[in-house]
Structure formats: C-alpha cells, structure tokens
C-alpha cells in the first residue's frame, strides 16, 4: 500500500480533493428524476403531511424565503379565530382577519364561537405554499382569501377531514361568474383524486387548508400540534377607501365625454369570436 501511494504520487490534500470531486459529480447523477414527473409542477400530494409541500417549494428560488404572505381568513359571521404565537394561542380575533404567514410553514388556528355550534372548537391549519406579487404597498389589500364555510366546519366536527387547496385562477380562462364574498368557489373532487394536482391544472396553488376534528394534544417539548409556532404577523383590517374614482383617467390631449349622444343600447344574440355585426 505504501509503495502504491508512492507510485501514485498523490499528496493527501490532492487525495481528499479527488474524493470530493467524485462525490459532487455522483450526486446529481443519482438525483435525476423520471421524465414522467416533469408534466406537473408539484410532485408532492396535497394529502401529504402539513409542511411537506411548502418546504419543497422553497427550493425553487425567488423571493420566497422570509416573505410574509398576507392571508385573509374568512369564516361565518361571529366566528372567532386565534393564531398560534410563541407557543400558545393568541387573542381571539373576529373573522375576517388578515395575517402574514411564512411560505412553507404551517399555522394552527383555533376556531371558536361558531354559529349553531356553540362550545365547539376546531383547529384547522393553513400552509402557504406560494406567494403572489402585488404592487408594492398593496400586499395586505390583495391577501389570499381562505374561506372557512359553515358546511366544512360541520363536516370536520362530524369526523371528516377536509383538505382544500386554494389556487390562483388562470385569467385567460376564468369562470364567468361573480365572486362571492361569503363563499369561496370550490370544486369538490373525488376521494381518489389529489386536490393539489387538480388545482395545479386549474391555476397556481398558493395555500392548503386542512380541517379535521382532532383535539389538541399539547406537548411542550415537541410542540407538534402548534407546528413549532412559526412567526406570524397579524394585520388589522381597516376600512379601505373607495378608490374607484373616475377622475384623472383622461389621457393628455383628450377631453372626457360629457354628453350622451348615442342611441339606446341594443343587445343582440350570442356570437362567436368571428362575427358580422348587424347593419
């Protein structure tokens, strides 16, 4: 062995460097994925344990780590909810409430004062898996809405486990229906389907809501029920001023229309994209 090393004439640092280079080149080769997984954005399942999808998304890069994505939690009128802060549930807040949540972390909530379910408490969790990019200063206004419907809370109390993936709609193919403030548009899927993959096809998944009837088993050492109390920011909900004013939209060089000098509106039948107007 001695003669072998002497014949190779490799100094110890060079020998260590050779091992490191071999290791670095060997790892990407072993980490190659099958090509069948490339047609979807999320390899994880929406039914995986809380935190797995978001943690995996953090490795994608971009201004995601450390960003508090505002979330607006809406619930039936009169419902109170409390977020976990510093290892314990904070003060109860009247829904709707906005909070800034880290991407990849899981936040436990306590829902109380549920209408028609006095004395019942449910503890849903929210996992933010992606963020949105509103204009600077409008982050809180354009918070991701998460609705806790009365029906879902009742199902959770009855023993069901509801997993809801909130996604950003594709604006090029939106559903031509009004958005309801009280109820979020929801697509119910079959038991065998994956909500994350279905949402990934319809738009861009941003958050996962999980509601069950599990009673808290507080353990100060592991703090698992609280998901290690990730940092959170509670954002107050002020009354937004009505910014739909028609002032100052007239371009330079033009005057705003003042007189109505047109014929009455005439609604015609449905037409395809290529059409000929009636004369």
């Amino acid at each position: 062995m001695k003669r072998l090393l002497q014949n190779l004439k490799l100094s110890p640092p060079l020998y260590v460097a050779l091992i490191c280079i071999t290791t670095v080149f060997a790892i990407p080769t072993a980490a190659q994925e099958p090509s069948s997984l490339h047609d979807r954005h999320f390899r994880d399942s929406g039914l995986h344990p809380p935190g797995q999808v978001g943690q995996g998304f953090l490795s994608r890069g971009g201004p995601i780590p450390g960003y508090f994505q505002p979330i607006e939690v809406r619930a039936p009128q009169g419902t109170q909810l409390a977020f976990v802060a510093n290892g314990q549930f904070g003060p109860s807040l009247l829904a709707p409430t906005k909070a800034g949540m880290l991407i990849g972390a899981v936040y436990r909530m306590k829902i109380t004062h549920i209408p028609d379910l006095e004395g019942v408490e449910v503890f849903p969790s929210i996992e933010v898996i992606n963020r949105i990019y509103p204009p600077r200063g409008l982050e809180a206004k354009f918070a991701i809405p998460i609705h806790l419907s009365q029906r879902e809370i009742e199902m959770a109390v009855q023993g069901f486990f509801v997993t809801r993936v909130i996604y950003l709609e594709d604006p090029t193919n939106p559903i031509p229906a009004d958005e309801s403030i009280v109820r979020q548009r929801t697509l119910d899927i079959r038991y065998t389907e994956d909500p994350l993959h279905v949402a990934d096809k319809l738009g861009r998944p941003v958050a996962i809501l999980r509601i069950g009837s599990r009673s808290p088993q507080l353990n100060a050492q592991t703090n698992r029920f609280m998901f290690s109390s990730p940092p959170i920011q509670i954002i107050a909900t002020p009354v937004l001023p009505n910014n739909n004013t028609s002032a100052s939209i007239t371009p330079v060089g033009f005057t705003k229309a003042t007189s109505v000098n047109v014929a009455p509106m005439n609604r015609t039948d449905a037409r395809p994209v290529s059409f000929s107007f009636p004369r």
């Binding site: 069901f160 996604y167 979020q184 697509l187 119910d188 899927i189 279905v198």
Partner: peptide
C-alpha cells in the same frame, strides 16, 4: 382565487 376540496 378559487379552491379544490377533498373530503376524506
């Protein structure tokens, strides 16, 4: 935003 719900 919209959502996809799975009940189990």
């Amino acid at each position: 935003f919209s959502s996809v719900r799975h009940i189990g």
